[in-house]
């Protein structure tokens, strides 16, 4: 049996929306970060789904790229968060507002 593609796409949309919501409403930088990962993986799911539907592999190749970039992003992002914590004793994104106009 096979699950129809629309279910994967629906799940992916739900995951993406949840990620977006997390980025927008959570104040902890770590959780915001995790939410961004969630959004990335929602997109990965979409890519894989479409690759299956079209019977081609190019979507899956893009997923590998996304994974690699996400890994690199995690390294840099976590480093930034650690440094913010050292400097300001907090990882609350609302407290880091030096660039206010």
């Amino acid at each position: 049996m096979s699950v129809p593609a629309v279910c994967y796409l629906g799940l992916s949309a739900v995951l993406f929306a949840l990620g977006t919501l997390g980025v927008l409403v959570r104040r902890s930088a770590l959780v915001v970060f995790m939410s961004v990962e969630l959004m990335l993986n929602a997109v990965n799911l979409t890519l894989v789904t479409f690759a299956r539907v079209r019977g081609a592999v190019d979507g899956q190749i893009v997923v590998f790229f996304v994974l690699v970039v996400a890994a690199a992003e995690v390294v840099i992002g976590l480093a930034i968060i650690v440094n913010i914590f050292r400097a300001r004793d907090t990882v609350d994104v609302d407290d880091v507002d030096l660039l206010r106009g």
Partner: peptide, 15 residues
């Protein structure tokens, strides 16, 4: 006036 949009709140930028 436009510079008031730059609140410094990361989440607002995301929005």
């Amino acid at each position: 006036d436009l510079s008031r949009l730059e609140t410094g709140f990361l989440r607002q930028y995301a929005a």
